[in-house]
Write a protein that binds this DNA or RNA. Sequence first.
DNA 1: AAACGTAGTCTAAACGTTTCGGCGCTGTCA
DNA 2: TGACAGCGCCGAAACGTTTAGACTACGTTT
Lengths: 343, 343
Amino acid sequence: MLDVARAAKVSVATVSAVVNGSAPVSPQLRDRIETAIREIGYKRNAIARSLKMGTTRTIGLMVADITNPFFTDVVAVIQDVLHRAGYAVMLCCNDEDVGMQDEQIELLLDRMVDGLIIAPAGDDAHLKRILAGASVPTVLIDRLCDGIDTDAVVLDNRRAVHDAAIYMLDLGHRRIGYISGSLDTSTGRDRLAGYRSALEAKKLAYDESLVRIGNFREKDAYKAAMQLLTSPERPTAFFSANNLMVIGVMKAIRDMGLRCPDDVSVASFDDFPWADIFQPHLTTIAQPVQAIGEQSAQLMLDRLSGQSPSQPRRLVLQGRLMIRDSCRPLQADAPDGTRREAS
Amino acid sequence: MLDVARAAKVSVATVSAVVNGSAPVSPQLRDRIETAIREIGYKRNAIARSLKMGTTRTIGLMVADITNPFFTDVVAVIQDVLHRAGYAVMLCCNDEDVGMQDEQIELLLDRMVDGLIIAPAGDDAHLKRILAGASVPTVLIDRLCDGIDTDAVVLDNRRAVHDAAIYMLDLGHRRIGYISGSLDTSTGRDRLAGYRSALEAKKLAYDESLVRIGNFREKDAYKAAMQLLTSPERPTAFFSANNLMVIGVMKAIRDMGLRCPDDVSVASFDDFPWADIFQPHLTTIAQPVQAIGEQSAQLMLDRLSGQSPSQPRRLVLQGRLMIRDSCRPLQADAPDGTRREAS
DNA sequence: AAACGTAGTCTAAACGTTTCGGCGCTGTCA
DNA sequence: TGACAGCGCCGAAACGTTTAGACTACGTTT
C-alpha cells in the first residue's frame, strides 16, 4: 500500500480511501491510484486490516465429525450462505471428544473468528467458560448444551425417534435394541428419551439391558450390537441413533450370520442418499439438512449485523420418518429370539 | 500484553519473552509475569502476531466437493496431522467449478495462509497465474494440473481402472458404459485412459457412444446412465469414475426396472464403508485415503520447514480392486441388450 | 586492574492497515 | 470583502505483537 502510494505520489490514506471507497476521491487521483494498484499487483493485506478493524470476516465452524455425511451436508450449506455473505469459514472437528473440542475452540478464538457455529461434543464445563469469556456470537447446531444460552437450531429428536419407535412397536416388536449416542450430548439424551416415551405410550417396560452406548461411531456400535445379538434373548429389531452407527449394526448382523430384515429389523436416525437403492432399503429418520444449514447460518448473520433480538433464538425443526423395508412385522412371539422367516 | 506488562511492572518485551520463551528471563520476573497473565486472563493476539511474523500457522485446504466421502476422509487425516504439528486448517471447496475455485483461493490467500493443499477443479489458467504470483508452498492432491509444478500426491488412476476394466472384460462384457468425470481434471482423463488402454489390451475397439461425461456428481451421472440405458444397444455393464456417480448409475438402473448385477453389472472408483453390507455388494477401486492424507500433509510440513529438495516431489499411490458381487459373467451374447438371467 | 563476555532487561522501530483531525482550497452568502 | 462551509487530501496515531540493539550489572579471563 505504501508502494502504491509512492507510485501514485499520494498518501496511504488516499489509497486506503479508494480501496475501500470510504471517502470521496477526485477522479484523476482515483485513476492514478487504480493504475498504480494494477501495475504493482497490490492486494490488501487482510491480516493488517483485521488487526486494525478488530474483525476477520471469518467464522469458525466446529462439527463433531467431518466424516459424517449429515455434518458435511450441513457444512456445505453453511459455507455456501456464509461465503455469499462475504465470510470465510474455518472448519474443524472435535472427533466427539471434549478435550479436542477445547483445543479447537481455543484455536479458532486465537484466530479471532467473528463468530462460532458449533455442534458440541458434550456438556463441557471448560467450553462454557471459554464461550462465556469470549465475546463472539455463537450458534449451536444439532446439539444443545445446558449452560450455554445462545442461538441454536436443532431437531425435535425426541419426537422423531418416538414416532419411529412407535412404528416398530406397531409392527409387533417388543425387544428393540437401542444403540445410543453419547449421553453427554443432547441428541444422545433426547433420542433415547424418544425411545422411552414410545415404550411408555405403549405401556411397555423400559428394559435397560436392551440399550447400549455407541458414541455415534461405527466401531462402538458394532460392539454394542454384537453384545446384544449374543445375549440370551436377542432383540428382534434395532434402532440406531445415527447414520454411522447403523453401519456398525448391520455389520454385526451380518457377522452373526443373520439377515435384515428377515431375522432382525433395523431403523436408524439420519438418511442416506443411497438408502432406497441398496438393500435392505433402510428405514430412517431424515433430517432437513438444507434448512438446518441455512437457518443456522442466517442466525449467525443476523447476530453479526446486530439486528437480532438480544435474547437467544432457538429453532427446532422436525425430522421425517422414511419408511422403507428394513423393518418387518414380527409374525409371532419368539420368546428366545430363535430365527423365524417372515412372510 | 501492555496490560500484563503494566501489572507486572515490566516492559512488553519481557512479557513477550516469557510468553514465547524466546529469551532468558529471571525466575522472579517470570513468576510475576505469569501470575499477571493468569489474573488478567491474557491471550496472545494471533492476528497481531501474524502481522509481525508474516506467518499465520494456518494452511488452506481446498477440495472439489466436501460432500464426497473420499475427500472428507482425506481431509480428516490431513487436519489431524497438521493440527498435531501446530497448524490450523482452513477448509473450503470449489464445487467442481473453476470460478468458485478462483474465488476461494483468493480468499485463502487474502487470509495469508502459509500453504495450500488443493484438489483442483480443472486446468485453470487463472489458478496457475494466482499460484505463480503467490509465493506459498502448494501441494496438489488427487488431481494434477498441467501448468502447476509442485509437490503432489495422486493415485495411479490409469492403471487402477485398467485393471478394473480388464476384470470386467474377462467376465465377458463387451459393451461397458463408462461414466466419466470432467475431462478438465487429470483424474477424469487418466481414468478414461485406463478404460481405453484395457480395451486396447484386449484388441477391442473404443466405442465413443459408450462413454458419457458425468462431472463427478450424482445428478449428471444419473442422466448419463439413463441415456446409455435407453439407447438401442444398451451396455451390459457400467463403470463409474467415482463414488458419487455410481449412486446415480444405480438409480438409473432401478428406474429402468433393471437389476444389478442380474441385468447389468456395475463397478466404480472409490470404495464405501458399507459396500460389503448392502446389496448389491459393489465392486470398487479403493483408494488409500489414509496414505494420501498423511503423505500430502507431510509434504506440506516438509516444505514449510524448508527441508525438502527444491524440485517438486510427486507421489503416486496404487488403488486396490475390491471384487465383490456387482459384476456377473456375461452368459452369452445378447446383441440387442435384451434381458437375460445370469446363473 | 582492565578488558571482556553474558544474562537480564528495556526502548523503540517495525508489520500494513484504518481513521481522526487538520489544512488548504474553492465557492457562497451576507 | 470577509466569514464560513465543504471538499479533497494528508500526517500521524493507533491496532498488538516481535525483535534488534542498547544498556546494566556482574563474573571471568588476561
